[in-house]
């Protein structure tokens, strides 16, 4: 059901531009929607991050999976329980660049009637493959956005198409991208616990990414589009001089619409882990609570009613009732109790 909803949503998103672009709406799908999407992406991203940044995180809430700094002869784990900024930097670096926490992924299995915990690296591997393929694909696409083409794109194209398979040369990252997204999807449907946990908002981005990848690959390898027109349109967009060349075809508009939808949807979805990974308070803070006192700078000035004030208020009554008093009835403090 949740899977079906996501699938139908993506199919609708494919149908809209595929049939819409043919009806003389090239300006809408080629210029207006991409501009709106880019604006929503950047503004939405900034607003979301600023919202997180404005939340108080007064204390060190680091989650650690290693020995904290202790006595000098206790072997410690600087990456899993960083003590200073430098160690925290490396912890964040390895997380963002190598997805270190996914490397610890485990799975529980029943083997001969006993629960066995084992290491499973598939999520980590597929995650790495998918994310880096996607990064290379995005960087390669800079070729379409700017002119003249920067040097790094030429190098990426050369390395990515190193084996010169077919013509146009097959980019290996295209294959890795589909395999990566494919595994991330199969993992959700193939593992019963994952299927139980998965929501439409988990399936939807996967289907959307897959649709973007397949429409893009379709244009390159199967149903060729006028690539020069495509670049004219994209360069026009990124130099605020929009043009919609004739004959770029519905497949391209579908690809562009799906990408526009993806980036507009980005700030409101789980995809914001791109920014969130940097702002994870359980990971981006040194675990030094044993060495330093952290005072909450946002402590609310709580209005308190101390016992002294209470006694001052009710002294005659308390005296009359025979209750013990810290101070004399005339208000003179006993020496040891001054100021409580």
């Amino acid at each position: 059901m949740r899977l079906g909803f996501a699938l139908i949503a993506v199919l609708v998103l494919i149908a809209i531009p595929y049939f819409g672009a043919g009806m003389g709406l090239g300006m809408l799908f080629g210029v207006i929607i991409p501009y709106l999407a880019l604006a929503i992406f950047i503004l939405g991203f900034v607003v979301k991050v600023m919202g997180w940044a404005s939340l108080p995180v007064p204390f060190r809430i680091t989650t650690t999976t290693g020995q904290a700094k202790s006595l000098p002869w206790v072997k410690r784990d600087p990456l899993e329980s960083p003590y200073n900024g430098w160690e925290t930097f490396w912890r964040m670096f390895t997380e963002i660049v190598f997805f270190r926490s996914l490397f610890r992924n485990t799975k529980a299995e029943l083997k001969e009637g006993r629960v066995v915990q084992g290491s499973t690296k598939f999520l980590w591997a597929a995650g790495l493959v998918f994310h880096y393929s996607f990064l290379v694909i995005i960087l390669r696409h800079v070729n379409y956005f700017v002119t003249p083409t920067p040097e790094f794109v030429t190098w990426l194209q050369f390395v990515d198409g190193f084996f010169q398979i077919g013509l146009p040369i097959l980019y290996l990252t295209d294959i890795f991208f589909v395999l990566g997204v494919g595994y991330l999807f199969l993992r959700r449907v193939g593992i019963s616990q994952m299927r139980y946990l998965s929501l439409a908002s988990d399936y939807f981005p996967l289907f959307l990414l897959l649709a973007i990848g397949l429409t893009g690959m379709g244009m390159r390898y199967l149903w060729k589009v006028d690539i020069v027109g495509v670049k004219e349109l994209a360069v026009g967009l990124f130099s605020f001089n929009p043009v919609v060349p004739a004959g770029v075809g519905p497949l391209f508009f579908t690809h562009l619409f799906l990408v526009s939808f993806l980036i507009a949807y980005f700030p409101f979805s789980k995809l914001m882990h791109m920014g969130g990974a940097f702002l994870t308070p359980t990971r981006n803070m040194p675990n030094n609570t044993r060495a330093e006192r952290h005072v909450n700078p946002w402590d609310y000035d709580v209005k308190v009613h101390t016992y002294e004030e209470y006694e001052d208020e009710f002294r005659p009554v308390m005296k009359a009732a025979g209750l013990p008093l810290d101070r004399d009835p005339d208000g003179a403090a006993k020496p040891e109790d001054a100021n409580g």
């Binding site: 950047i42 991203f45 956005f145 130099s239 605020f240 001089n241």
Partner: peptide, 15 residues
């Protein structure tokens, strides 16, 4: 995110 815009603005023949 705005790299293509900046790049195109800097290079002469863009647009």
């Amino acid at each position: 995110a705005l790299f293509p815009v900046i790049y195109n603005a800097v290079t002469a023949d863009a647009g």
